[in-house]
Design a protein around this nucleic acid. Structure first.
Lengths: 267, 267
DNA sequence: CAATCCGGAATCGTATACAATTTTTAGGCA
DNA sequence: TGCCTAAAAATTGTATACGATTCCGGATTG
């Protein structure tokens, strides 16, 4: 049933939609150090083909082309990517470990639907970890890294101006990842990537207002703090930025879809 | 070659070696809330049988029965646990995601050998995260949870007195996990579990002195801070405790095994 | 008419078989 | 003796097949 998964062209580039050139010249940014090692959670790359499937699925989820709750049938995904269930299974397990999909025994894999509680916890965790990492990063930012950050912000602006909401959010996450990579802490970096991935799901579910160009300002301020080696400042900006993100969510039971119907007309 | 893996009885309890009764009566503690949900990294449990294998391998690694660098052949593990390679593979992948084993393409799975850099990063990460979690935990510790912590410390003492070094370290890690569970933060708790698991590997590789009953004191102090709801104190104690652990490591290239030989007689 | 029960279809869990790659070993040659 | 080459052995990567469980629809019955 259903034509659920419709990600990219069977064998497009690993991050096809990630290279979308909104405007010609100013869009050279494109996540620099986030190639293969930015894989799922960051850990042990699944062998061979599974990794490609992983990345495509991940990108699709992070760009909200696959919404939370969608079923990822092994057969279906396998047919789409022209792979056997064995490797699809590996890919799905990998994504499950990174928290993007959840697997229910004998029922299959679904794009994760973070609970409200988990949403809170993810952003609390980010509020604990990322500010500290931002401080570390501020202490050792090179010129080219600053350029990279600038390009990221640039790209965010472009996407936002073009009204590409989901892509904008994706890039926003990539910015945070870029910051964590500057800190050159792989362990914390991996953790942060995982949290940001999950944040993407949370935002897809609980975002309050579809407008709000809130991001770019904080990101710019953060970059400037890093530019002037202001660790303390960077830490504080990051902290408040994440708190802002957290409070920008509408964390109440959403009573989604038909459940709402049966609930509304109950009596 | 080799009779590498020799964990438990093919189908013993999930955590057989974890229940080793050093002394009869005083050993009732045994990790309370750390049953199945304390699985590997904490994430998506591999389906069915794989989970059991996961847990057994994990326990063996955490107790240093499987040393870093050991090869975990799929066939071999499969034969030992009476399972087919399919499920063994899933188990190994899961452990790889939690950082306990590393897989090299076309070469197989090995118990991870954390690099010195990774060792530093893991303890830096713990120093960032755990103190904050300890603070949270201190604010909401119930009586029974205190009892549980007490039992943990008790068990550590017993193991230490019996000279069971590796088990003592294992229990030390479990104590930290117990603290994180009190904080009732699943996301951060999962992260902490993963970091502690890796710490176990790091300690196996880089521990300085095989003696040192250093742990228990800090743990006891932490417990008392939590008992008196002293969040600030708990945070500080945890912080310094982790720094102590970090500095208790001998983080220099160990030139292990034969490499040492060729090095010694080089000139 | 509604609730329940059963059978088919679909999907997942596991085992086994085959292909690809690596490692090792045996052999030949300088 | 030492080193390079090549074939064999071992191990992993992938595909397919079969059994088990769940889901969905229709028939039966109170």
């Amino acid at each position: 049933m259903s034509s659920a998964v419709k990600a990219g062209t069977r064998r497009g580039a690993a991050v096809p939609s990630g290279a979308k050139p909104a405007a010609g010249p100013p869009a050279k940014p494109d996540v620099k150090g986030a190639d293969a090692r930015s894989a799922e959670g960051g850990f042990s790359l699944p062998p061979g083909r599974a990794l490609a499937i992983c990345l495509q699925l991940q990108t699709a989820i992070l760009e909200h082309r696959l919404r939370p709750g969608m079923k990822l049938s092994e057969d279906e995904v396998g047919e789409i990517f022209g792979a056997s269930r064995t490797v699809v299974r590996a890919a799905l397990h990998a994504l499950a470990h990174s928290g993007l999909v959840s697997m229910e025994r004998n029922r299959g894999a679904f794009v994760s639907r973070p609970t409200i509680r988990e949403a809170h916890e993810v952003f609390e965790a980010r509020a604990v970890i990322e500010p500290r990492v931002a401080r570390l990063a501020a202490g050792c930012t090179t010129e080219s890294q600053l350029e990279n950050l600038k390009a990221h912000i640039e790209a965010e602006h472009v996407a936002l101006a073009a009204g590409e909401m989901s892509r904008s959010l994706y890039l926003s996450g990539q910015f945070h990842i870029a910051v964590s990579e500057i800190a050159d802490q792989q362990v914390l970096g991996t953790i942060i990537r995982s949290l940001i991935s999950r944040s993407s799901l949370i935002i897809a579910l609980y975002w309050k207002r579809p407008d709000t160009a809130c991001e770019s300002h904080s990101h710019h301020a953060l970059m400037r703090a890093m530019e002037s080696q202001d660790g303390q400042g960077a830490e504080e900006i990051m902290k408040s930025h994440i708190v802002d993100l957290h409070s920008g969510l509408d964390l109440v039971e959403h009573s989604h879809h038909d459940q709402a119907l049966s609930e509304v007309f109950k009596k």
